Simulated assay, not measured.
Amino acid sequence: MAKFTTKDIKLLAKQMRASYKDEKPFTLLTGAGCSVSAGIPLAGTLVKEILKTYGDECRRQLDDEQLRDYGACMSCVPINARRKLFSDHLKKAKINWAHIAIACLMKAGYVGRVITFNFDSILARACSLLGMYPPTYDFAAAATVDTDYIAPQAIIHLHGQGTGKHLLNSDKETHNHAENIRPLIRATFTESSLLVIGYSGSSDAVFPVLTQEYSGRENLWWAGYESNPNLNIEGLIRPYSGVA
Rank of each mutant, 00 (worst) to 15 (best):
D146W: 03
H157G: 07
Q161C: 12
L210Q: 01
R182Q: 10
L220P: 13
A154Y: 02
I115R: 07
P135V: 08
S170R: 14
A178T: 09
A151C: 09
G224C: 10
N96K: 07
A103H: 07
I100D: 11
P229K: 10
G164A: 15
N96R: 02
K165F: 00
D148W: 06
T144N: 13
R182S: 14
L130F: 12
W221E: 03
E218W: 00
I181P: 00
P208T: 04
T174G: 07
A126F: 08
E218P: 04
G164L: 12
A103Q: 04
T190S: 10
S200K: 04
G201H: 06
L167K: 08
E213T: 07
S193W: 02
V114Y: 11
A205D: 05
N176V: 07
T188L: 06
L129H: 08
I150H: 08
S200N: 06
A142C: 09
E213G: 03
A126M: 11
L195I: 11
G160D: 10
T188E: 01
G162A: 08
S203K: 15
I155R: 07
T144P: 02
D120Y: 05
Y133N: 14
S193E: 05
R186V: 08
K92D: 03
P183G: 13
L129A: 01
I197V: 13
I155N: 06
E218A: 06
V196C: 01
I122G: 00
S192G: 05
T136Q: 14
K91S: 10
G201P: 02
Y199C: 08
D148I: 09
L194E: 03
G201F: 00
F207D: 03
L129W: 10
D148E: 10
G164D: 11
P152A: 03
A223N: 01
Q153R: 09
H175I: 00
T144C: 15
K107P: 01
A223Q: 01
H175M: 11
C104L: 13
I122W: 04
L130G: 00
Q212R: 10
G131P: 11
D146P: 07
Y110N: 06
V114P: 02
S121I: 01
K91I: 06
Y225I: 15
D148C: 11
N176S: 13
M132T: 02
D120E: 15
T188H: 02
T144I: 05
K94L: 12
Q212N: 12
I185E: 00
I122K: 03
H166I: 10
H166C: 12
H157Q: 07
R113W: 04
G216E: 04
W222K: 01
I95Q: 04
A124W: 02
I150D: 02
W221S: 06
E213S: 14
G160V: 08
S170P: 14
A108W: 13
N230R: 14
E213P: 09
T136S: 09
D138R: 14
L168I: 12
L168D: 12
L167I: 15
G216F: 13
L231E: 12
P208D: 03
Y225D: 07
D204P: 03
R186I: 09
L105C: 11
N169Y: 01
L168K: 09
A140Y: 10
T116Y: 04
N176W: 13
N228R: 14
S170Y: 01
V114L: 07
I185A: 05
